[in-house]
Every structure is written in structure tokens, then in C-alpha cells.
Amino acid sequence: MSRERFDLLTLQEAMDILGVSRATIDRWRKEKQLPYIKIGKEVWVNKQKLHDWVQLHALKEPEEKGPRETADRRTVTVGYQSGAALLWSTLIMKQLGLFEQELERISPATEYEVRWTNASNGMELVEELISGRAQIVSVGDYPISASRELGLLLPRFRPLMLAFDGKTRSGGGISLVVPPGSRVRKPEELAEVSISTVGHSSASYRLKEYMGVFGFDSAPITHRSMGDCLSGLVEGSTGAAVLWEPYLSWAQLLGAGAPIVSAGIGEDYLTGLMTDGNWAEGNEDIVIAYLKAHLRAHAFIRRQPERAAVLVHQASGFPVSVISLVLPQIRWDASFYSRDLQTLNRVSGRRERELQGGTAVGTGVAFQKRYLQEAAEALKLPILPDAPLPGEWSQEQIY
């Protein structure tokens, strides 16, 4: 009998509906009698009973909290992108409950609630950050640079970069792809081909740069979701698409397309963690706890890639074969290098400025390195200097 007949949800589906991590839903099962059914090793949740349970607790919450109204309770919303491979460390954190573990360590007496919000692109998460609906977000290098401009326009918004996430060399994580059988053989022939990509993203930024270099500025551009870009290649409804990982590797495994240039598009592809400096100043303990979880997630991916691939599959739905192919191609390194700052400066279109007092990078996006330093020290990792690490990326990945 199928589970649909009994209207059953997997535990992961219930987590997605409630927007919580595995650690939180396990705690609710134990402490708040969240209804579930266990058959063998599998845990299921009846959809109607879950709805009733949510309604019951929503109604009872003021009454239940009566004796504890003065107790310390803090909520943190984390924005992530399950469809961007260079940001999959957040999925590892969510699946393993690493952030919740670190929050409990800093203050066992405090009740923390972590909310997770998934977005299709980084600019959506920057909007969440500006509005205060999210406190920490994981985004690509274009949204990082764009947040600086928004910070100049919005005086109450102080974009603060906390650390880097996944990195790929020489544009390896993003590439312009054409479908099999395409008549396009070189970039100049793209002038009359329809090209699709995600608007206002790291992919669209690189497409614009690429068009300028090879002189096909007249090519028609369509802004679509990354999933739709891949579907367009599969169905043959688009002449080319700029894909980021894992869609880039997935397209090649499906035989739906191949990069028109093997080296990808432009400079290194970088991603990182952003917050609002105003919020960070009042919540430094939470920021450091998050960065500790972030560094632990990086170490987990590097040391246990096979298990990490399974966890990412459970959280995102991408095939394990695709995830296993992509994970080793990404440099999981939270630290700042001079090379990274140069790339961000190029993305922002502004000339490089020297780091001043460890509080600002050349793009004008503030970076308080003390948070990452304290997180690394707490995990007994090598001490991070105040200045960016010199030159190119080191051979050994520590952070």
C-alpha cells in the first residue's frame, strides 16, 4: 500500500512544511508530542494530524508560556539556497542540527528557535536580510557586492560579510551551456541564439561580462529559474543557458548540453555568509555559534563526502550521483585570501582598497573578522590573522 493512501508525510517533508531542522522536529516529538508513526526504521507523519497539532499549539502557546513569559527566548532565521551547490554547507548544518548544537552550548538555559527559509536566488535573501525577516543568509558573490550598493541607499541597512562558503577556481562553478546538436561552435555565434539564466544573479553577471568580451550583446536574454533553464536545454526550447552547479554537472550527465568553453565564465566563483551589522552587534554570541557550525559543516564535507552527498540529497532532492560529482570540485574554505578580495573587487566593478583595521574589504562590504577568528579559536583551529591570507589559495583547506 502506498503512503499516499494514508496521507503520510516523510519526516523530511514534515520538516520542510514546518521549516525546521531534524534536531528541532526530534525535540518536538519528545517534548511537545508531535504525532508520528514509526514503521521499522522509517518515521512517518500523518498530514491531517500534523495540521491539527500545529493548530493546537498555535492556540495554546500563550497559555502554555504563561509561567515562562519572562524566560529568555530567541529566534534566528537562516536563509539558504538548496539549488546552489556552493552553498550546500547550510544543508549539512540543517540536516545535522549543528547550529542548534552550538546555540545550546553557548546558553543551555535559553530557548532558541531556528527557522530556515529556502530561496531560489541570492537577491531574494538580501531582501529578506534588509526587511529583517532573516538574520543570516548564504549568497553568491553578485548579491554580496549588490548588498554594498543597497547599504549606501538604505542607511539602516549595514551589510556585513561573516565568512566565505564554497569557492571554485576560474569560473568552474558557472558556465554557458549549449544543447547537443547546437549549431553554435564558438562564442561569437551566440549573437542570435536565445540565452536563459537567473536574473540579477552571479550567473547573469558573468553572462553580461562574457557578452561584452565576445561581442554578442544583441543576443536575446530570458530570465528564468535555474531549474527552468535546465529544462529548456532538455526540451530544446532555449539556445543556450548559463548554469551554476549542480545544474551544470546535471546537464552534462543527462546529455542535455555541454559548456561552450571548458574554463567556465570569468574569474573565481565565490559564495559567502551575510548579515546586518546592526543585528550582529547585539547578537555576537549567535553569530559566533553560527560560524562554528559553518566551519564544522565544511570539515564534515571534506572528511565525509559520501555521507555529505546523502544528506544533501535528502535535503535538496538532487540525485546522489550528481551531488557526488560536484562536491569534490568545490573548495570548502571560509577564510579570506587576497585572491578572494581581488575577485570581489572585480565583481563589484570598483578598484581595490586596502583592508583597514580588519573591518572592511575592498568592495566596501564590511567584514568583522573577529567573529570568524573567535569561532576558529573555539574549535581549536589555527589562528586567523587580522589581514587576509596572502596570495593564492593554500593547498591545505583548514577552515
Rank of each mutant, 00 (worst) to 15 (best):
Q12H: 15
E13I: 02
A14K: 10
D16Y: 13
T24R: 10
D26R: 13
R27L: 14
L34Y: 14
Y36S: 10
Y36E: 03
W44R: 00
L50R: 00
L59G: 13
D72W: 03
D72H: 03
D72S: 09
T75D: 06
A84H: 13
A84V: 10
L86V: 08
L87T: 09
I92L: 08
L96D: 09
L98G: 11
I106Q: 00
S107E: 00
T110I: 04
T117L: 11
A119Q: 00
G122E: 02
E124Q: 08
G132V: 04
Q135W: 06
I144E: 11
R158T: 07
M161K: 05
A163W: 09
K167T: 08
R169Q: 10
G172A: 14
L176D: 15
A191D: 15
V193T: 08
S202P: 02
Y205S: 04
R206P: 08
G212T: 06
H223P: 06
R224F: 13
R224S: 07
G232S: 01
G232D: 05
L233G: 02
S237Q: 01
P246H: 01
L253K: 06
A258E: 11
I265C: 11
I265K: 03
L270K: 07
G277R: 01
W279V: 04
V287L: 11
L291C: 13
L291S: 10
A293D: 15
L295G: 06
A299E: 12
F300I: 04
R303W: 07
Q304D: 15
E306R: 00
Q314M: 13
A315L: 02
P319A: 05
P319S: 03
V320A: 01
L325S: 03
L327H: 03
D340Q: 06
D340S: 09
D340I: 08
L341W: 08
L344Q: 05
N345S: 10
G349S: 11
R351K: 10
E352N: 09
E354F: 15
T363F: 15
Q373H: 04
A376C: 10
L384C: 00
D386G: 10
